[in-house]
Amino acid sequence: MTDFVLTRIAQGDSRALRECIDQFGSLVWSIARRLTRTRADAEDAVQEIFTDLWRSASRFDASQGSEKVFIATIARRRLIDRLRRSAAQGSTESIDDVETLTWTESGNKAETCAEAQTAARAVMQLRPEQRQVLELGLLQGLSHSEIADALKMPLGTVKTMMRRGLIQVRQLMGVTSVDSDEVAS
């Protein structure tokens, strides 16, 4: 029997739906809190994300990555859409206080999956300004326009830095030893 709860959901094991909540509820909630404006918004988002997860379970391929990364991918997709929709509606809801986060070499927690630890090491090799753009976008949930405003940068520059940063992190995650000068150039 597979150990992957998503695989078991895809196979029709209804008990795996509940296990998925217990196993990944805290993760999804933490991500939702990070990328939504209010607690109520986060609660709605988490409910939508779990339905997305159960529906998408058959697309999980353990050879392509961990369950955590798959779940975080699905969660981010839903949350980005909600942020965009909220911006389009001109939401004026007050933002609940959330702490500012950044990356550290080892990731933020001992149980962080291997891909996240590798990603943390990779992002630390980027130029500080490039890392800051990724940080504001991926950890703080700011749109490209908001990042441009915050950093007093042209929007095109933000988009270019975001694209190059992600490509470089990807390359660094797949390459064991990369000259940091080459990355910074």
């Binding site: 933490s30 991500i31 990070r34 392509q64 990555g65 955590k68 990364v69 798959f70 975080a72 991918t73 969660a75 981010r76 986060l101 950044t102 990356w103 990731g107 933020n108 962080t112 999956c113 891909e115 996240a116 630890q117 590798t118 990603a119 943390a120 992002v123 990724l134 940080e135 991926l138 950890l139 992600l166 992190v169 990807r170 995650m173």
Partner: peptide, 11 residues
């Protein structure tokens, strides 16, 4: 996937 891994690393 890379963005998700970075989110996991920082969140």
């Amino acid at each position: 996937q890379t963005a998700a891994a970075l989110l996991l690393a920082g969140c």
